[in-house]
């Protein structure tokens, strides 16, 4: 390990939204940290608060959001207390974000060149230097004939190329932390494979921290060192990726893994029921109505996040019972290929 200091620290973060008189508790008591060059993943179903958390990190939340508790510390700076001026320096240059839909995230009436140059603003660069750097970046993300494509608009690119162009534009700011919100969800598997490898290689080359948000455990496995499983705004389990896949210690994680078709079982084991509404969370553990080992205490008290093994946290009253449950991979067996 080179740099042991944390790049980003989030502590006890809560985010509420006010809509039509309701108080939507989107994120509750979220704590995590990311080191330089480390990749962390958030996984969970739609509405679990994974995107909200990531948007809070670059202060892109809607106006009706409020943060009643928690801290976001980036390199000793309190992100939540930053002024607009400080935010301008922080966004893009320190933390960059790539979105699921490049078509909506990038400006359709500006060329790639213009959008790339915006990132160079404030830097002492000549026109030639800017152009050279822009072409270099497009080449780095694997866009063929970058000299020509620099003056094209985003709609002239194909799906995979759009995502690459967005990554190149984000990289132009030389962020230390890259947040990727479902970067491959809209893409085909072959293109997804290319983007995953691209993110991995860039992370290694530029020693960036990565925060990847996805609902696909496969993508997490291929990119992240550690992972947090989110459910109804809570972190329910957090550990390194390998341990999570081999020995999940929360019934929701087990449910997620079991629900993936693996070609072995005749019938899938879905998690019964639906995700709860964030306006009206069940009492006690939010997962209790769908949980196969729910007991009385689960419907009364929200379980604390406990460390079941060193570095392995689970938010379940009966996490110990999950010991011995085999996940989707076997640690004793060597990885294939």
């Amino acid at each position: 390990m080179k740099d042991e200091r944390n790049l980003l620290e989030v502590e006890g973060l809560c985010i509420h939204f006010e809509t039509n008189g309701y108080d939507v508790q989107a994120v509750q008591d979220v704590t995590f940290s990311i080191k330089k060059g480390e990749a962390m993943g958030f996984v969970g179903e739609s509405g679990c608060g994974k995107s909200t958390t990531s948007r809070a990190i670059i202060r892109l939340l809607a106006k009706n959001a409020n943060i009643p508790a928690g801290k976001i510390i980036y390199k000793d700076q309190d992100v939540l207390k930053m002024s607009q001026d400080e935010l301008r320096k922080y966004r893009g240059k320190e933390v960059g974000m790539i979105f699921q839909e490049p078509m909506t995230a990038l400006n359709p009436v500006l060329t790639i060149r213009t959008q790339m140059y915006e990132q160079f603003r404030g830097k002492d660069m000549s026109k030639e230097e800017k152009e050279k750097r822009a072409i270099e970046l497009l080449r780095l993300v694997g866009i063929p004939s970058p000299e020509k494509r620099l003056d094209e608009y985003i709609h002239q690119f194909s799906g995979g190329m759009r995502q690459r162009a967005m990554i190149a534009i984000v990289l132009a700011g030389e962020p230390k932390l890259l947040i990727a919100d479902e970067p491959t969800t809209a893409l085909d598997v072959t293109i997804q494979d290319q983007i995953i490898k691209l993110i991995n290689n860039l992370r290694e080359e530029l020693d960036m921290g990565v925060l990847l948000i996805t609902h696909d455990l496969g993508v997490i496995s291929q990119v992240c060192d550690k992972v947090a499983v989110m459910y109804a705004g809570f972190f329910v389990e957090e550990t390194d990726t390998l341990t999570l896949m081999a020995h999940p210690m929360h019934p929701y994680t087990k449910g997620l893994i079991d629900a993936i078709p693996n070609g072995m079982t005749e019938e899938l084991k879905p998690i019964p029921g639906n995700t709860p509404s964030l306006i009206d969370l069940p009492n006690g553990c939010p997962f209790s109505p769908r949980c196969f080992m729910c007991e009385e205490i689960c419907t009364k008290e929200i379980p604390p996040m406990v460390e079941v093994d060193p570095g392995h946290f689970s938010r379940c009253h009966f996490a110990e019972r999950m010991r011995g449950y085999k996940g989707v991979i076997d640690l004793d067996e060597e990885g294939k290929e």
């Binding site: 496969g218 991979i329 990885g335």
Partner: peptide
């Protein structure tokens, strides 16, 4: 082969197929 493996130990460096 392009479908991401659930095993974090199976990480390849290069994409299996380039281009569209």
């Amino acid at each position: 082969r392009s479908a991401p493996s659930l095993d974090p130990r199976n990480r390849a460096k290069k994409a299996l197929i380039e281009g569209n």
